[in-house]
Amino acid sequence: MADREHRYHVTVEWTGNKGQGTESYKAYDREFNVLAEAKTAIAGSSDPAFLGNASRWNPEEMLLASASACHKLWYLHLCAEAGISVESYLDKAEGTMMEARQGRFTQILLRPQITLRAGDDIELAKALHHKAHEQCFIANSLNFPIVCEPQIKHA
Rank of each mutant, 00 (worst) to 15 (best):
Q151F: 13
F32K: 00
R56F: 11
M62T: 12
I138A: 04
E61T: 05
W74P: 01
S141E: 07
V34Q: 10
G95T: 00
I146G: 00
T106A: 04
A132L: 01
N140C: 03
G52W: 00
Y25V: 14
E87R: 11
L124F: 04
I84R: 01
V34H: 09
G103C: 02
G119A: 08
L35P: 01
E23N: 14
M1G: 15
E5P: 02
L78M: 01
Y89S: 04
L142A: 07
P150G: 05
T115Q: 12
M1R: 09
E60P: 04
A69G: 13
R117P: 05
F32T: 01
A132N: 02
W14Y: 02
E13L: 13
G16A: 05
A67F: 00
A67G: 05
S85V: 11
S85H: 11
S45V: 04
A38P: 06
M97T: 10
E31N: 15
R56E: 04
K18I: 04
Y89E: 01
A132K: 00
M1N: 11
L78F: 09
K92T: 12
D120L: 06
V10L: 14
V10T: 14
S88R: 00
M98G: 13
A82K: 04
H129D: 03
R4K: 14
L116F: 04
I152L: 06
W74M: 13
G19S: 02
Y8R: 07
G95V: 00
A132S: 09
L109Y: 03
P59M: 08
R104C: 10
Y75K: 07
L128Y: 02
A2D: 13
R56S: 03
